[in-house]
Simulated scan of single mutants.
Amino acid sequence: MPRLLLALLATAFLITGCTSSSYDLMETSSVKKMRFKDNDPQDFGKNHPGLHEIHGIDVSKWNGTDIDWPAVKKSGIAFVFIKATEGRDRIDPTFELNWRGAASAGIPYAPYHFYYFCSTADEQADWFINNVPKDAVKLPPVLDMEWNQASPTCKTRPDPETVRASMQRFMDRLEAYYGKRPIIYTSVDFHRDNLVGAFSNYHFWLRAVAQHPTKIYPDRRWAFWQYTSTGIVPGIKGEMDINVFAGTSKNWHNWIAAVDK
Protein backbone atom coordinates (compact mmCIF):
# COMPACT_ATOMS: atom_id res chain seq x y z
CA MET A 1 0.00 0.00 0.00
CA PRO A 2 1.48 3.44 -0.87
CA ARG A 3 2.88 5.37 2.08
CA LEU A 4 0.68 8.38 1.33
CA LEU A 5 -2.45 6.23 1.59
CA LEU A 6 -1.21 4.81 4.89
CA ALA A 7 -0.73 8.32 6.23
CA LEU A 8 -4.23 9.29 5.13
CA LEU A 9 -5.70 6.21 6.78
CA ALA A 10 -3.92 6.93 10.03
CA THR A 11 -5.01 10.56 9.96
CA ALA A 12 -8.62 9.59 9.26
CA PHE A 13 -8.52 7.23 12.22
CA LEU A 14 -7.10 9.94 14.45
CA ILE A 15 -9.96 12.25 13.53
CA THR A 16 -12.84 9.77 13.60
CA GLY A 17 -11.94 6.88 15.85
CA CYS A 18 -9.35 7.81 18.42
CA THR A 19 -9.94 11.01 20.30
CA SER A 20 -10.20 12.08 23.89
CA SER A 21 -13.94 12.49 23.53
CA SER A 22 -15.03 9.99 20.90
CA TYR A 23 -14.48 6.63 22.53
CA ASP A 24 -17.87 5.23 23.46
CA LEU A 25 -18.18 4.12 27.07
CA MET A 26 -21.31 2.23 26.12
CA GLU A 27 -19.25 0.11 23.75
CA THR A 28 -16.75 -0.68 26.52
CA SER A 29 -19.24 -1.00 29.36
CA SER A 30 -18.49 -4.71 29.73
CA VAL A 31 -14.96 -3.84 30.92
CA LYS A 32 -15.58 -2.17 34.26
CA LYS A 33 -12.78 -3.26 36.57
CA MET A 34 -9.10 -2.37 36.43
CA ARG A 35 -7.37 -5.11 34.49
CA PHE A 36 -3.98 -4.87 36.21
CA LYS A 37 -2.96 -4.42 39.82
CA ASP A 38 -1.45 -1.12 40.85
CA ASN A 39 0.72 -0.38 43.89
CA ASP A 40 -0.53 3.22 43.97
CA PRO A 41 -3.98 3.26 42.34
CA GLN A 42 -5.61 6.60 41.58
CA ASP A 43 -9.28 7.49 41.50
CA PHE A 44 -10.00 8.62 37.94
CA GLY A 45 -13.73 8.72 38.48
CA LYS A 46 -16.22 7.17 36.09
CA ASN A 47 -13.87 7.41 33.08
CA HIS A 48 -11.22 5.15 34.60
CA PRO A 49 -8.70 3.18 32.50
CA GLY A 50 -10.49 -0.11 33.13
CA LEU A 51 -13.20 0.98 30.71
CA HIS A 52 -10.74 0.61 27.86
CA GLU A 53 -10.40 -2.70 26.08
CA ILE A 54 -6.82 -2.36 24.84
CA HIS A 55 -3.93 -2.12 27.32
CA GLY A 56 -0.20 -1.86 26.77
CA ILE A 57 3.12 -1.17 28.47
CA ASP A 58 6.33 0.73 27.86
CA VAL A 59 9.71 -0.74 28.79
CA SER A 60 13.37 0.20 29.02
CA LYS A 61 16.54 -1.02 30.74
CA TRP A 62 14.92 -0.24 34.10
CA ASN A 63 12.62 -3.23 33.63
CA GLY A 64 15.52 -5.68 33.53
CA THR A 65 16.60 -8.33 31.07
CA ASP A 66 14.41 -11.25 32.11
CA ILE A 67 10.95 -10.25 30.92
CA ASP A 68 8.74 -13.28 30.32
CA TRP A 69 7.11 -12.09 27.10
CA PRO A 70 4.70 -15.03 26.69
CA ALA A 71 3.40 -14.32 30.22
CA VAL A 72 3.05 -10.63 29.34
CA LYS A 73 1.03 -11.53 26.26
CA LYS A 74 -1.13 -13.98 28.22
CA SER A 75 -1.92 -11.28 30.80
CA GLY A 76 -3.73 -9.25 28.14
CA ILE A 77 -1.07 -6.76 27.09
CA ALA A 78 -1.81 -5.79 23.48
CA PHE A 79 1.11 -3.48 22.66
CA VAL A 80 4.49 -2.35 23.94
CA PHE A 81 6.49 0.84 23.45
CA ILE A 82 10.21 0.09 23.78
CA LYS A 83 12.94 2.61 24.52
CA ALA A 84 15.48 2.55 21.73
CA THR A 85 17.60 5.69 21.66
CA GLU A 86 18.32 8.91 23.48
CA GLY A 87 19.88 12.07 22.10
CA ARG A 88 22.52 11.53 19.45
CA ASP A 89 24.71 8.92 21.12
CA ARG A 90 22.81 6.63 23.50
CA ILE A 91 20.99 3.38 22.87
CA ASP A 92 19.03 1.48 25.48
CA PRO A 93 21.01 -1.71 26.19
CA THR A 94 17.85 -3.83 26.35
CA PHE A 95 16.30 -2.50 23.14
CA GLU A 96 17.06 -5.40 20.83
CA LEU A 97 16.29 -7.98 23.52
CA ASN A 98 12.93 -6.33 24.16
CA TRP A 99 11.72 -5.86 20.62
CA ARG A 100 12.72 -9.37 19.62
CA GLY A 101 11.05 -10.75 22.75
CA ALA A 102 7.84 -8.87 22.03
CA ALA A 103 7.96 -10.00 18.41
CA SER A 104 8.40 -13.64 19.35
CA ALA A 105 5.39 -13.42 21.68
CA GLY A 106 3.24 -11.80 19.01
CA ILE A 107 2.84 -8.44 20.77
CA PRO A 108 2.80 -5.39 18.46
CA TYR A 109 5.70 -3.11 19.36
CA ALA A 110 7.17 0.30 18.60
CA PRO A 111 10.53 1.88 19.45
CA TYR A 112 10.77 5.29 21.07
CA HIS A 113 13.38 8.03 21.11
CA PHE A 114 14.00 10.37 24.03
CA TYR A 115 14.80 13.81 22.60
CA TYR A 116 17.57 16.07 23.88
CA PHE A 117 17.88 19.72 22.88
CA CYS A 118 21.68 19.72 23.00
CA SER A 119 21.96 18.15 19.54
CA THR A 120 20.13 18.78 16.29
CA ALA A 121 17.06 17.01 14.98
CA ASP A 122 19.09 15.60 12.09
CA GLU A 123 21.81 14.26 14.38
CA GLN A 124 19.21 12.50 16.50
CA ALA A 125 17.27 11.20 13.50
CA ASP A 126 20.52 9.81 12.06
CA TRP A 127 21.25 8.09 15.37
CA PHE A 128 17.78 6.56 15.56
CA ILE A 129 17.82 5.37 11.93
CA ASN A 130 21.31 3.91 12.29
CA ASN A 131 20.34 1.92 15.38
CA VAL A 132 16.71 0.95 14.83
CA PRO A 133 16.16 -1.52 11.98
CA LYS A 134 12.90 -1.43 10.07
CA ASP A 135 12.00 -4.84 11.54
CA ALA A 136 11.93 -3.17 14.97
CA VAL A 137 9.21 -0.75 13.87
CA LYS A 138 6.05 -2.86 13.86
CA LEU A 139 3.93 0.08 15.03
CA PRO A 140 4.85 3.71 14.27
CA PRO A 141 7.97 5.00 16.06
CA VAL A 142 7.49 7.30 19.03
CA LEU A 143 9.08 10.68 19.77
CA ASP A 144 9.33 11.20 23.55
CA MET A 145 9.19 14.94 24.29
CA GLU A 146 9.76 16.01 27.89
CA TRP A 147 11.82 18.65 29.67
CA ASN A 148 15.00 16.91 30.77
CA GLN A 149 16.00 19.19 33.62
CA ALA A 150 17.36 16.20 35.55
CA SER A 151 20.09 15.69 32.96
CA PRO A 152 23.57 16.57 34.25
CA THR A 153 24.71 17.60 30.77
CA CYS A 154 21.72 19.09 28.91
CA LYS A 155 19.31 21.50 30.58
CA THR A 156 18.56 23.57 27.47
CA ARG A 157 14.96 24.78 27.16
CA PRO A 158 14.36 26.31 23.71
CA ASP A 159 11.41 28.54 22.87
CA PRO A 160 8.20 26.83 21.66
CA GLU A 161 8.77 27.72 18.01
CA THR A 162 12.20 26.08 18.07
CA VAL A 163 10.79 23.05 19.88
CA ARG A 164 8.08 22.51 17.31
CA ALA A 165 10.41 23.03 14.36
CA SER A 166 12.89 20.50 15.78
CA MET A 167 10.13 17.97 16.39
CA GLN A 168 8.79 18.38 12.87
CA ARG A 169 12.20 17.86 11.31
CA PHE A 170 12.88 14.74 13.37
CA MET A 171 9.46 13.24 12.64
CA ASP A 172 9.68 14.03 8.94
CA ARG A 173 12.99 12.16 8.77
CA LEU A 174 11.55 9.09 10.51
CA GLU A 175 8.37 9.06 8.47
CA ALA A 176 10.34 9.26 5.23
CA TYR A 177 12.58 6.36 6.27
CA TYR A 178 10.13 3.99 7.99
CA GLY A 179 6.96 4.88 6.09
CA LYS A 180 4.96 5.42 9.28
CA ARG A 181 3.92 8.71 10.84
CA PRO A 182 5.44 8.94 14.34
CA ILE A 183 3.47 9.08 17.58
CA ILE A 184 4.21 11.91 20.02
CA TYR A 185 4.62 11.11 23.73
CA THR A 186 4.59 14.03 26.13
CA SER A 187 4.03 15.14 29.71
CA VAL A 188 1.71 17.79 31.14
CA ASP A 189 4.29 20.55 31.58
CA PHE A 190 5.99 20.05 28.22
CA HIS A 191 2.66 19.97 26.41
CA ARG A 192 1.51 23.12 28.22
CA ASP A 193 4.74 24.97 27.37
CA ASN A 194 5.08 23.91 23.73
CA LEU A 195 2.36 21.81 22.15
CA VAL A 196 -1.09 23.25 22.85
CA GLY A 197 -2.87 23.41 19.51
CA ALA A 198 0.08 21.94 17.59
CA PHE A 199 0.46 18.70 15.59
CA SER A 200 -3.24 17.98 15.37
CA ASN A 201 -2.61 15.44 12.58
CA TYR A 202 -0.39 13.25 14.76
CA HIS A 203 -1.31 10.57 17.27
CA PHE A 204 -0.57 11.62 20.86
CA TRP A 205 0.41 9.39 23.77
CA LEU A 206 -0.18 11.37 26.96
CA ARG A 207 1.07 10.94 30.50
CA ALA A 208 -1.71 11.52 33.04
CA VAL A 209 -1.23 9.53 36.23
CA ALA A 210 -3.50 11.46 38.60
CA GLN A 211 -6.36 12.74 36.44
CA HIS A 212 -8.05 11.80 33.19
CA PRO A 213 -6.32 13.37 30.15
CA THR A 214 -9.39 15.44 29.33
CA LYS A 215 -8.90 17.35 32.58
CA ILE A 216 -5.24 18.29 32.08
CA TYR A 217 -4.83 18.37 28.29
CA PRO A 218 -7.79 20.52 27.21
CA ASP A 219 -8.89 20.02 23.60
CA ARG A 220 -6.11 17.51 22.86
CA ARG A 221 -7.11 14.43 20.91
CA TRP A 222 -5.21 11.42 22.16
CA ALA A 223 -4.62 7.86 21.07
CA PHE A 224 -2.76 6.44 24.08
CA TRP A 225 -2.94 7.28 27.78
CA GLN A 226 -0.17 6.39 30.23
CA TYR A 227 -2.19 6.20 33.41
CA THR A 228 0.24 4.70 35.94
CA SER A 229 3.91 4.08 36.60
CA THR A 230 3.24 1.72 39.50
CA GLY A 231 1.33 -1.03 37.76
CA ILE A 232 1.99 -4.75 38.09
CA VAL A 233 2.10 -6.91 34.96
CA PRO A 234 2.63 -10.70 35.04
CA GLY A 235 5.97 -11.64 33.51
CA ILE A 236 7.75 -8.44 34.57
CA LYS A 237 9.42 -7.85 37.94
CA GLY A 238 8.70 -4.62 39.74
CA GLU A 239 6.43 -1.71 38.93
CA MET A 240 5.45 -0.81 35.38
CA ASP A 241 4.11 1.97 33.21
CA ILE A 242 0.71 0.85 31.89
CA ASN A 243 -1.19 2.51 29.07
CA VAL A 244 -4.56 2.26 27.36
CA PHE A 245 -5.68 2.85 23.79
CA ALA A 246 -8.50 5.36 23.32
CA GLY A 247 -10.64 3.36 20.92
CA THR A 248 -12.46 0.07 20.98
CA SER A 249 -10.99 -3.31 20.14
CA LYS A 250 -12.40 -2.93 16.63
CA ASN A 251 -10.70 0.47 16.28
CA TRP A 252 -7.46 -1.10 17.44
CA HIS A 253 -7.47 -3.93 14.94
CA ASN A 254 -8.38 -1.57 12.10
CA TRP A 255 -5.51 0.74 13.02
CA ILE A 256 -3.03 -2.14 13.30
CA ALA A 257 -4.04 -3.29 9.84
CA ALA A 258 -3.48 0.21 8.47
CA VAL A 259 -0.05 0.88 9.97
CA ASP A 260 1.49 -2.60 9.91
CA LYS A 261 2.61 -2.57 6.30
Rank of each mutant, 00 (worst) to 15 (best):
L206Q: 01
D43H: 00
G235K: 11
F114N: 08
H48T: 09
S22P: 09
H48I: 01
G56A: 00
A150H: 15
I77M: 08
I216M: 00
Y185C: 01
T162H: 12
I129R: 02
W222S: 04
E239K: 08
G231C: 07
R88P: 05
N98P: 15
S75M: 10
A102E: 02
A84W: 02
T65I: 13
D40F: 01
N130H: 11
S151K: 15
N98M: 04
I184L: 05
I184G: 05
E86R: 01
F245Y: 00
K261S: 15
F36E: 06
L143P: 09
K74S: 13
F36M: 04
D172K: 13
W62Q: 14
V142A: 00
D89A: 10
T85C: 07
V31Y: 12
D89W: 14
D189G: 05
P158T: 10
P111T: 06
Q226E: 00
G197I: 06
D219F: 04
E123G: 15
S22V: 13
A78I: 14
A121R: 01
N254G: 14
S60F: 10
I54L: 13
E175L: 14
Y227P: 00
C18P: 06
D135Y: 09
Q42I: 06
S75R: 08
S29Q: 12
R181A: 03
V132I: 06
F44Y: 02
R3N: 14
N148C: 13
E96L: 10
P158L: 10
A223H: 07
N251R: 15
D43Y: 05
A7D: 11
S166R: 07
A210C: 08
Y115Q: 14
G231W: 05
A71M: 14
Y116S: 13
A165S: 15
R207G: 00
T11F: 14
A102Y: 08
V163N: 00
T156E: 11
Y217C: 05
G87I: 06
W127A: 07
R35N: 09
E27H: 14
F117E: 00
P234L: 09
P158G: 08
P160N: 11
A71H: 08
Y217I: 01
Q168E: 11
P140V: 07
A12M: 11
L14N: 09
T28F: 11
V233H: 01
D66N: 15
L4W: 12
L51G: 02
A105T: 02
H191E: 01
P234W: 07
L6A: 07
V209D: 04
N63P: 07
P160V: 14
G231T: 06
H55L: 03
D43W: 04
N194W: 03
G247T: 04
P140H: 05
G17W: 13
K74L: 12
D219N: 03
A136C: 05
Q211D: 05
F44R: 02
S166H: 11
T156S: 15
